[in-house]
Design a protein around this nucleic acid. Structure first.
Length: 615
RNA sequence: GCCCACCUAGCUCAGUCGGUAGAGCACGUCCUUGGUAAGGACGAGGUCUCGGGUUCGAUCCCCGAGGUGGGCUCCA
């Protein structure tokens, strides 16, 4: 169960062969255009394939149609894919003659691994590739395809190796499936949180302020405030103690925690702070670092007094803002940033309690994710990384505890070998969003290292000091990433309880304004966020604007409504209006929808954004 | 960090074969009193990302920096 477990599920062998064959045909087309091309790897991937090339010049998107054209010609010729076994020396000679350095490198590697002395090749037309297969029989069997993008990629994914040019493409058995896939790509683009973030005034990242740092604009700040309020309530219910800890800390604590040694490249600092030192000023300034994690602070909170076993488990939680250095190329909207707030908690308990606590966190995490309409949770267990603290015995014990906790719940899971943090192994819960993409949900780590380094203890029933166990966990992960994901999951159409504009009241004409104000006041008195449309003007325009702001409800009132004490209700994303709804009935409906945290009627894989594109 | 592309009004973009620039939306003022997804007129808005170079002259060409985007996990 190595990292290869994370390989996309090709499921269907035919689809695998189809895409793999399309990759070969693409490589053949590239060879026609660039006779000096050298070839890297060209595997099928989740929804298509790619192939890496070493070319004399940089490709641009304008090259893709030309390559596609040649590919279609190859498909039209209906050439056979011919398979041959070669001895390793034969293969080496063959690819040396063609100056295929990367293939030679791979044959050499295979020779060491496989040791049966042969490798296999596939040929169609003039293109021969080192390849395990399988392929479709003839190029004519290749279905509709599309080349999508060009990107840089390192040989074998290692940045010390030469960088190759990668072309991504997609291929499907039928035109219908290709169209559906291209439509899904468009849907993903429509849902892009960076785009919705700008359109709906949700967040902004300003160059002058600094890249990777998020400004939460008023609308998204409403979402965050609701999430935080709910988070605090849930955590108090589940026996958590909430705290606040500083954003910078003295160098010595990060020396002790091991952060400087194992995590220092991700940390900002040092900040030099004068610490008195008398009039002579001979004492060197103290060095502080910006906190990259909340755990050292929470350990200090725990250690503010001696704890009895009777107090355990002690669950210390904080919405803690941390800063981590991320490489420029890794930054991405709200999803990959340099400053973010974790809903971080550290549970201090005895070894005997640890599994039960892990289980409770697991159950809480599931409840969390369900609330937002995420589905199909998948569990991953990440084990000790190469760069780590502590002995193998401790890691055996910690990994064992996580496996045990999952085992008790009979939860199927996959192992990510070496994917743990430097101080602990972890359980990750990943979920699928409204359009079937996987997102990181919650993370649970069991840590035996930091308690040892900080000598974290409690007094047990025998009156002895006993080593505590520390469980690190986040449910949201970071508010930035979670909310960025929510924007895409909901396509900007937030459920009522989170919405920044729960309803807009639109008076049809000036005479209905007093009644509109009365409606707005009544709703605001029940704690709803209401926009009272101030502009005179075309009613259609005002409806359109309210739809554009993603108001959950549009309450249109004119003289008729004022007279009958009703409202005309129109839901976001819908073209239907419901007239003559009594004010009290409306209030009741909205309150129920808010209290139950109901997902909006326009939630789903298609609904929201299709509605958006109408008109 | 690396490869490639991009950076022009708040946003989305056009444009200048090198002679300091335009549209739509948004914004402001006015008109429009409108029954369910774009009513009309006028106006304001720019160090063409920044720094160097070439040139009589650079938003445009060259070099560098910053930022953004696609990638850099899928191993014949």
């Amino acid at each position: 169960m190595a990292k290869t477990e994370r390989k996309p599920d090709h499921g269907d062998d035919k689809l695998y062969a189809l895409r793999h064959s399309t990759a070969h045909v693409m490589a053949g087309a590239v060879l026609e255009l660039f006779p000096d091309a050298k070839f890297g790897f060209g595997p099928p991937v989740a929804d298509g394939f790619y192939y890496d090339f070493d070319l004399p010049r940089a490709l641009t998107v304008e090259d893709l149609p030309k390559i596609e054209e040649r590919m279609r010609a190859t498909v039209g010729q209906d050439l056979a894919f011919e398979h041959k076994e070669l001895s390793v020396p034969e293969a080496l000679a063959f690819f040396r003659e063609r100056r295929q350095d990367y293939k030679i490198d791979q044959i050499t590697k295979l020779d060491e691994e496989v040791q049966d002395g042969t490798v296999s090749i596939y040929q169609h037309g003039g293109f021969v590739d080192l390849c395990r297969g399988p392929h479709v029989e003839r190029t004519g069997k290749i279905g509709p395809f599309r080349l999508l993008s060009v990107a840089g990629a390192y040989w074998r994914g290692n940045e010390r190796n030469p960088q190759l040019q990668r072309i991504y493409g997609t291929a499907w058995p039928s035109q219908k499936e290709l169209d559906a896939y291209l439509e899904k790509l468009k849907e993903i683009e429509r849902r892009d949180h960076r785009r919705l973030g700008a359109d709906l005034e949700l967040f902004r990242i300003d160059d002058e302020l600094g890249s990777g740092l998020v400004l939460w604009l008023p609308n998204l700040s409403v979402v965050r405030e609701e999430l935080e309020t709910w988070w605090r309530a849930i955590h108090r219910e589940h026996g958590y103690t909430l705290v606040y800890t500083p954003h910078i800390a003295h160098e010595k604590i990060y020396q002790r925690s091991g952060h400087l040694e194992k995590y220092g490249e991700n940390m900002y600092g040092p900040l030099l702070l004068e610490s008195g030192g008398g009039p002579g000023g001979q004492r060197p300034p103290d060095r502080f670092w910006i906190k990259p994690m909340n755990c050292p602070g929470h350990i200090k909170v725990y250690q503010s007094k001696v704890h009895s076993y009777r107090e355990l488990p002690l669950r210390i939680g904080e919405l803690g803002t941390v800063y981590r250095y991320e490489r420029g190329g890794a930054l991405h909207g709200m999803l990959r940033v340099r400053g973010f707030t974790q809903d971080d908690s550290h549970i201090f308990c005895s070894w005997a309690q640890a599994q039960d606590e892990i289980g409770k966190v697991f159950d809480l995490a599931m409840e969390f994710l369900r609330t937002f309409g995420y589905s199909d949770p998948r569990i991953y267990l990440s084990t000790r990384p190469e760069r780590r603290l502590g002995s193998d015995e401790l890691w055996d014990k910690a990994e064992g505890a996580l496996k045990e906790a999952l085992g008790v719940r009979e939860v199927p899971y996959q192992v990510d070998e070496g994917g743990g943090v430097f101080y602990a192994p972890k359980i990750d819960i990943k979920v699928l969003d409204a359009i079937g993409r996987e997102w990181q949900g919650a993370t649970i780590q069991i840590d035996l290292n930091l308690p040892e380094r900080f000598d974290v203890t409690f007094v047990n029933a025998k009156g002895e000091r006993e080593r505590a166990v520390m469980i690190h966990r986040v449910l949201f992960g970071s508010l930035e990433r979670f909310v960025g994901g929510l924007i895409e999951h909901y396509a900007g159409n937030f459920p009522l309880w989170l919405s920044w504009e729960q309803a807009t009241v639109i008076p049809i004409r000036e005479t209905a304004r007093p009644y509109a104000e009365e409606i707005a006041t009544a709703l605001r008195a029940r704690g709803f966020r209401i926009h009272l449309d101030p502009q005179p003007g075309d009613l259609r325009t005002r409806i359109k604007e309210a739809q554009g702001r993603k108001a959950n409800y549009m309450l249109v009132v004119g003289d008729r409504e004022a007279e009958s004490r009703t409202v005309s209700v129109r839901r976001r994303g819908s073209r239907e209006e419901e007239r003559g709804v009594a004010l009290e009935a409306l209030l009741e409906r909205l309150i129920t929808e808010r209290e139950t945290k109901a997902l909006p009627p326009d939630f789903g894989p298609r609904g929201p954004s299709l509605a958006d594109t109408l008109g």
